[in-house]
Design a protein around this nucleic acid. Sequence first.
RNA 1: UGGGGCGUCGCCAAAUGGUAAGGCAGCGGCCUUUGGAGCCGCCAUUUGUAGGUUCGAGUCCUACCGCCCCAGCCA
Length: 565
Amino acid sequence: MSSDDSTKPKDFIRAIVAEDVAKKKNGGQVATRFPTEPNGCLHIGHAKSIVLNFGIAKENEGGICNLRFDDTNPTTEETQHVESIVEDVRWLGYDWGDRIHFTSDYFDQLFEFAVRLIEKGKAFVDDQSAEEIRANNGSLTQPGRNSPSRDRSVEENLDLFARMKAGEFDAGRKTLRAKIDMSSSVLTLRDPIMYRIQKSHHHRTGEDWSIYPMYDFAHGQSDAIEGITHSICTLEFQDHRPLYDWYIQELGLEPAPRQIEFARLNLTYTVMSKRMLRRLVDEGHVDGWDDPRLPTLRGLRRRGYTPDSIRSFCEGIGVAKRDNMIELARLEHSIRHDLNLRAKRVMGVLRPLKLVIENMPEGEVDELDAINNPEDDSAGTRKVPFSRELYIERDDFMEDPPKKFFRLAPGREVRLRYAYFVTCTEVVKDVDGEVVELRCTYDPATRGGDAPDGRKVKGTLHWVSVHHAIDAEVRLYDTLFSVEDPTRTLPGQDFTDNLNPSSLEVLRKVKVEPSMAGAVPGSVCQFERQGYFCVDPDSDEHRLVFNRTVTLRDTWAKVAKKEKR
RNA sequence: UGGGGCGUCGCCAAAUGGUAAGGCAGCGGCCUUUGGAGCCGCCAUUUGUAGGUUCGAGUCCUACCGCCCCAGCCA
């Protein structure tokens, strides 16, 4: 039964960690962190990183994972984002104990680190303007030029840096730069800026500082301060690793944390950059950060995705260094798999078509037993009222059906789920020829759905009793974009040109079975034969609103599509 | 173009010189009171290309091709 599979690292990062632990590096300890800038909303790409970092900590004895906010740029960061991020990571199912940290907690120490580098002659205050710095930075193929300020004395640098801190200079007038190599082919090493002057309000330190460290100068040192052993980030930071290591080494920080990079998540039919997500929200293409069409954690939650499904998705896609684009189908698979096991089955008719059973007396109500979840006996059964007038799905009737259509048609007999066999005897149309009602007869001997004479029926339909049904609104979602990679655009266009104009369809005349009365926001169910749905927070005691999380797999749709061709 | 990375099935992804896992998707079939779920089977003679080393190469060497990232006082 047991095997060694569980001890086998699943990806290259876990392999590195396992190797370090085996070598007793860092005393065999493992400490990771999930870092983020509090300037936006978490999305499923962040979830990949969260699951990775917290997962590695959990898998190693005594391992820890800190939550860290990289709040080094006061102009873009806000407390409200901190709160929303904390909530999202918790919702995903992770706990960091009391280890919630802010880079701003380390501002004093970082300042001291900077002074130390100045004293070593490894940093200098630069008088150049942003334009001059850019102009002297060279290009991909051309080396840069040394700043005229580069050879200032240690004393002068110390004095200037102290005055920068004291707020004596206006924003942009001076920077503190590391003295490395302006001709390096690694652009990050061309005397990188360590501190810039910025006189804006910081969400935690207020007006205490007029200088703020750059990410590169802050991140590795923060890792070292927290005792992080493995600092996992995305591929675009690969070029920063030499600088990360340079600061740690020049400052003699031990044990040295190790930066490891992996490929970020890309998902088809959506975008994952903060910038683009923000535009979608700001320009009103979606209805807020929690719009169910967004790949944000809040959007996915409102859509009905469970933390379990997101975690198993992230664990399933793997971690590697090659660029990837995961098919949406894979995410959908993980939520279907999860909800199949836990969602209560219920009948709801999205586009109602009236069906009258002529041989059933008016006013008679038959209470039938229905199974709540065939995957889970403990979910039990419920009663569903059946009567002379019912609604069935419009799509479940065709006047002139193709060969493989198993549902209702004139003269044809089908089963109404958990109820009776019915046969269509007459089709009622309005003046435009639109089918408005079906007349049927039922076979009382088939109560529950089986014929005592053993006769079989091809199709089983969901239904709802006209006089017992509850009204509901249903929001059907399609992909937000109509192409797999919305960032790939034609000349002169941008990603919003790839938006799917029909990503949202609202159905306002939905009829659901009475057992749904009082359903609470956030609760999930399966409308049989249609998909998984969850109750939207827009619901109240007078209004029931459902979001379709995902459809059921639909082989009929495939057959129908094939026949059309 | 200088530098840093990456190329294994439609999409992910294992394989650490010993004869190409697995998942998703797809395709058949079984079963079915959800055209759901479940079950069974099929799905890379070949790892970007071309050479080379070796008894043996996805793994090592050479050359080429392709894709991604870097020229913020963003992270």
